[in-house]
Structure formats: C-alpha cells, structure tokens
C-alpha cells in the first residue's frame, strides 16, 4: 500500500513510446500548472492589463499588488481601500497551527488507544469520529453558530480552533492509527519486559516509529485547515478571518481586484507549498521505511 513506485518501465521502451510518454507528461503538467502560472502572471499585473482584450503576455510587471497587500492600503481610481490581508494571513497561521497542534495532542494518543486496545465500542467511536467528515459542513454549522453565540465562542480563535478539530482530528486519528497498527506489538512488549513503563514505551518506541506517519497526517491536516473556507466564513468576523475568507474582500463595490486576489492566492499557498516541499523527503523516507519493515 505504501509502495508508490510503479513497475520499472523505462528500461525497454522504444523511442516513439518515450516521446509519446514525454508528450503526455508535458500535457498533464501544463494542465495542472497552467492556472498557477497564470495566477502568478496576474499577481504582477494591474487590473487594467489583466482585463484587456485580447489577453496578452506582454506587460510591464509591477509589484503594486503585493505592496498593497503588505502595507494594507490599496489605491484605486475610486479612492483608497483598507485591506487586512496580513491580518488574514496571520489568522490563517494561528488557526492552522493551533488546530493541528491540538489535533496532534488529542489525536495521537487516541490513535494509539484505538490501535492497541480493542475495547468495547472502540470501532464505533473511531467510526463516529470519521463520520464527521461525511456530513456537509452546514449541517454542523447551523447548530454550532447558535451554541457558540450562547457560549461566547463565536468569533474567537479558541472557538474556531475547536471547530477545526472536525477537519483535523479524524484525519490524524485514522492515519496515525494505521501507523501504530503497523508497529509489531512484540517490539513494544520487548521494551516493557525490559523494564520500562507503558508511558515510556509509548514515548520511546511507538512515537518515534510512527513519526513519519504523524508528520504526514499533521501536514495533511494543516493543508486542510489552511484551505478551509466555510467554517471561518460563518463563525468568524473580519478580524479573525483566514485568507480563504479574506480574499472575498477584494470583490469591492468598485469592481473585482483581480491583481490583488492573484497576489493573495500566491502568498497564501506559499506557506503550505514550502511546508510540503520541506517535509517531502522526510515523508518519502518514512514511507519507504514502512515498506522495508514488512
């Protein structure tokens, strides 16, 4: 399951096959990369050059979109506009990091319990946690909005991080549980028989061996949390909104600020992209470790 390598097909292929394969790969890459490329181009153009018809690749690049986002002031013909993009970005960081951290603290021990101790109803509880992901978010949101207002949790970081557990916790629980189940129970028994308590066995054996899985689950949860839109849209006001919701502010009465939207998108995917690239080699290492163990 963890072996992502396909069969080795490169050895005995004819030149035509290789060219066709290359062409197909190029098309796929273009298809998926083009929007990102286009957004990148848009982010260094003014609204005027973006909207001219027919579109052209020839323009003078400008950093005014980024500048506007970072300084928080946008000058348009209709006047100046305050934007809170940096606050949105900061909110995204707080919400994503906070909710992933909380989900790890809660989810990893829970995953271990589900993997190692088959108690009555353990499967049901684990499945119930997963089932939060089946329901449309609005189903959860409507009652939650009322509760949160009652409890004073609406429009707070704590409240949002709590709600984000609906995204992060099941993900971490189910992925990490699989990694714990892959560890031979004998390895843990051996450590306990050697004279260590269950807690130190969990810390010194189970956690390090499931480390790559925990990292992968954490990364995925972070991306899902970062890209979440609907929870924050309903439950947060302007000063707590993450970038996903904040991008809506660029749809103004005087028109849609495409340049700023593009720059905002680039800036908001940068952290997750950097994180994924950084974690990639560790993830691959971890995944292949799992494959060798057998």
């Amino acid at each position: 399951m963890r072996d992502k390598r396909g069969p080795h097909v490169m050895n005995h292929t004819s030149p035509i096959e290789r060219i066709l394969r290359g062409a197909a790969l190029t098309i796929v890459v273009l298809f998926f990369m083009f929007p990102i490329f286009w957004i990148l181009l848009m982010s260094v153009q003014t609204n005027e050059t973006i909207l001219r018809s027919p579109p052209s690749m020839v323009f003078t690049p400008t950093l005014q979109n980024y500048q506007a986002l970072i300084t928080g002031r946008l000058e348009t013909q209709a006047g100046s506009l305050d934007i809170e993009f940096m606050q949105n970005l900061w909110n995204s960081v707080i919400l994503s990091v906070g909710s992933v951290a909380l989900a790890l603290v809660l989810g990893v021990p829970a995953a271990y319990a589900f993997a190692r101790h088959k108690f009555r109803g353990s499967e049901d509880i684990a499945f119930t946690l997963l089932s939060f992901r089946f329901a449309p978010p609005l189903l959860v949101l409507l009652p939650l909005t009322m509760y949160f207002q009652e409890l004073g949790l609406a429009d707070t970081y704590v409240g949002l991080i709590w709600v984000y557990q609906l995204i992060c916790l099941p993900l971490i629980l189910w992925i990490v549980r699989g990694y714990f189940e892959d560890i031979s129970p004998d390895v843990e028994h051996a450590y306990r028989i050697a004279g260590h308590s269950w807690l130190s066995t969990f810390r010194k054996i189970a956690l390090p061996l499931a480390g790559p899985g925990i990292a992968a689950a954490g990364l995925l949860a972070f991306i899902f949390a970062w890209n979440n839109f609907i929870f924050a849209l309903v439950l947060a006001s302007a000063d707590k909104q993450p970038v996903t919701v904040g991008a809506l502010n660029f749809i103004t009465a005087s028109g849609i600020q495409y340049g700023q939207i593009a720059a905002a998108v680039i800036m908001s995917i940068a952290p997750t992209l950097a994180l994924a690239l950084y974690a990639q080699r560790y993830l691959v290492e971890g995944l292949s470790l799992g494959a060798v163990k057998g």
């Binding site: 390895v187 028994h189 028989i193």
Partner: peptide, 20 residues
C-alpha cells in the same frame, strides 16, 4: 504485576529489536 516489574528477560522469535 505489569510486565516491567516481573523481572523477566525475553527473546522473541521474530527478534523484536527496536528498529530505530
């Protein structure tokens, strides 16, 4: 009595070495 307090040494058939 939990395993760590039984004062036992054990060698497993599959070795069960700590891989890390």
């Amino acid at each position: 009595v939990p395993p760590e307090q039984r004062g036992i040494g054990m060698a497993f058939q599959n070795f069960a070495l700590f891989p890390h």
